[in-house]
């Protein structure tokens, strides 16, 4: 990766990323209830984190955009650089959360002495909602951001359309949660985490492909 571009990206993202890291890790450390796969708070936090990080990394002010796209680095490379940066930040967040749990720090805070290993490994379940929601957040933001820039390069979206878009987004996430609750209770026994994983993986692939295509083909306005 081009060092100077990386520096720019990091300067953009680090304040938010560190804040998000502190918030999420504090939750993982100090939340007095057991951490489990169905943790709605961490899922929401993960989603917002992915959403906002993607927005910060991929969004360029018009002046910077024009500067960036006039450099020697290709659009293709720029896209993948940013994509990998987001991916690394997400993975780093997961690794830190996993390390905090598996080091038994929660056990030290809540009980005098290490807990039974069962509890520790059990709490690693929280990595599922954190990871899946982060990826979903990244995918959704990636798709929406670059789609908007591709389709509407020269004018702001109307307020109604913008609100409607977010209503749809909330409906989609709500439905996914609903499905996650309904499907495991149907006659076919499927783990909702499995369904969510497949869905989110598909979403990531499609949104990356779409965003990449939009990124390569969008027009730059000065």
């Amino acid at each position: 990766m081009n060092k100077s571009i990386l520096q720019i990206e990091l300067r953009k993202i680090l304040p938010f990323y560190i804040t998000a890291l502190v918030v999420i890790i504090s939750y993982v450390l100090f939340w007095p209830k057991p951490l489990m796969a169905g943790d709605g708070i961490i899922a929401t936090a993960g989603f917002l984190q992915g959403f906002i990080i993607t927005w910060i990394v991929f969004r360029d002010a018009p002046a910077v955009e024009c500067f960036l796209f006039s450099r020697g680095i290709t659009r293709q490379r720029l896209f993948w650089n940013r994509w990998w940066l987001v991916a690394v930040l997400m993975i780093l967040m997961l690794i830190i959360a996993a390390a905090v749990i598996s080091a038994g720090l929660r056990c030290l805070i809540f009980v005098n002495g290490p807990w039974h290993p069962m509890v520790k490994w059990y709490e690693l379940n929280i990595l599922w909602p954190l990871g899946l929601a982060s990826v979903a957040g990244v995918s959704v933001r990636l798709f929406l951001l670059l789609r908007d820039r591709f389709l509407k390069p020269d004018k702001m979206l109307s307020t109604i359309r913008r609100v409607w878009k977010y209503i749809l987004l909330v409906a989609a996430v709500g439905s996914a949660v609903l499905l996650g609750r309904v499907i495991p209770h149907m006659e076919i026994a499927i783990d909702y985490l499995l369904i969510a994983s497949f869905y989110v993986a598909g979403l990531l692939i499609l949104s990356t492909a779409t965003a990449r295509s939009c990124f390569l083909n969008m027009e730059i306005h000065t």
């Binding site: 789609r147 389709l151 869905y199 949104s207 492909a209």
Partner: peptide
């Protein structure tokens, strides 16, 4: 170039549909 933007439009539609898939599925299940 025209072909490329058409392909991008297609990507956008497919992804939008996929994104909304849970809504349709939950309607169907409901």
């Amino acid at each position: 170039m025209k072909t490329k933007t058409t392909r991008t439009h297609l990507w956008v539609k497919v992804t939008a549909f996929y994104l909304m898939l849970p809504i349709y599925l939950s309607i169907l299940l409901g």
